[in-house]
Design a protein around this nucleic acid. Structure first.
Lengths: 231, 231
DNA sequence: ATTAAAACATGATTGAAATCATAATAATAT
DNA sequence: ATATTATTATGATTTCAATCATGTTTTAAT
């Protein structure tokens, strides 16, 4: 892992996940020494629910889904774009297993950090731990929103929610190329593929969105927001 | 707050929330000085979603529900028994509002701790922060389970889940006096009151539970677990 | 004790959305 | 270039569970 100590490494994203900026020199070096850069191909599994948690992941590029596995259908907890950490919820005394699975929608590069190191940093560096708490609470707040959307809204509201989420949180633009199939969108909104297709047509006919192929543009965000709020 | 410094206070529950044991003398005193003991009557609201977060709550006795408020219906995130902390998810840089509401099913006594003090402790005491991370991740894991139950299981599975949760997590006994109405159970399982009534009768007829008045006994836990797993 | 209001109960009806069935396109592999 | 598979599409049917309607019992209030 020589490249990690090179000048080049200093420019990589890992230091942009704000928590790493709070480490002193020795701590940074510890992280660097137990860090690996990995690339996963579309569809590959990064984290397997129930597996012993060995690493925290920092997404450098790509797009992943975090989901709960269960009997028949998965439940997607959220989609996570680059510059975010994965696996924090496994930082736990005792039972050190990942509480969810993570796989990627598109080729994804991550930097892994040894979870033992990570835990040590939390135990010895209060500022670092504080940042992790912030991070955890931010992602929890997001899950709450999704929990509400999926349990209390019906199809229209749920589709509006996911479209707004993709625009605001993931792609940070009202038009974007969707790397997701209708089937993926169905999984994401907890509805059948057929319902997604029907609703997207409806939204398009109503002038809420434009679509050609994989490219989407939200043309009436205020109305989408109203639909989201009405459920 | 003289009573807080008395010998009596030293025996109260606050030190039993393991994180407080990690404080040194000065820190403990800081907590004690900014702590209040409050009693809420059945149905009262302890924490209001969206309000500025002023305190962390430690439940000494009673039973509360933590829920998201929304347009029409609330979404219960979990029920929390005594010896747990409430409001941790509001420990956040910047936007310091509670992300959920909390009200109580029965008379509830809580000890409040000033949130500014709490944050300071997190920033200065890594062991304390570490414990908080544990606590957050534990409650997140629980929410995940509920999220899955409510979005992927149908009525039978959801009712089995909540009965098992009450027995295992809340009352720690297979028979207990339920302080919840059928309406409350409906809110908790995301189903209509009528469905709760119908299903409870069905479970009783099938020999899964016994009920007289408010007292419930789970008579066939293995089968309830199978129902929970099947959905 | 009597009334009012919750809570519990059961059957009938309705509704939202999944599933099923069947095609048409588009993408990928051979 | 052709076959195979995945994706998109649309209509018909079914299902689960909510809502509605109505009645009974229990609890709380005057």
């Amino acid at each position: 892992m020589n490249d990690l100590k090179s000048a080049k490494f200093c420019k990589t994203h890992i230091y942009e996940a704000s928590c790493f900026q709070l480490l002193d020199l020795a701590e940074s070096e510890m992280v660097e020494n137990q860090s690996r850069l990995l690339t996963y191909r579309k569809g590959e599994t990064l984290i397997k629910q129930g597996a012993f948690a060995s690493s925290i992941y920092y997404i450098e590029s790509g797009l992943v889904k975090v989901y709960l596995e269960g009997g028949s259908k998965n439940l997607i907890l959220n989609i996570t774009p680059p510059r975010n950490l994965l696996g924090l919820q496994a930082v736990f005394e005792g039972n050190n297993t990942y509480p969810y699975s993570v796989s990627c929608y598109a080729e994804t590069t991550v930097r892994t950090v040894d979870i033992a190191i990570f835990k040590q940093l939390i135990r010895q560096n209060a500022a670092f731990a504080n940042r992790i708490i912030n991070n955890l609470n931010e992602s929890t707040a997001q899950i709450y929103g999704r929990f509400y959307s999926l349990t209390r809204k019906q199809l229209h509201g749920r589709l509006a929610d996911i479209l707004l989420c993709l625009a605001n949180r993931i792609f940070k633009s009202e038009s974007f190329d969707l790397p997701l199939s209708r089937n993926d969108l169905g999984e994401l909104t907890s509805m059948s593929t057929e319902s997604v297709i029907r609703l997207i047509s409806e939204f398009r006919d109503d002038g809420l969105i434009e679509m050609n192929g994989k490219s989407i543009r939200l043309t009436d965000i205020p109305r989408l927001q109203r639909i989201s709020e009405l459920g």
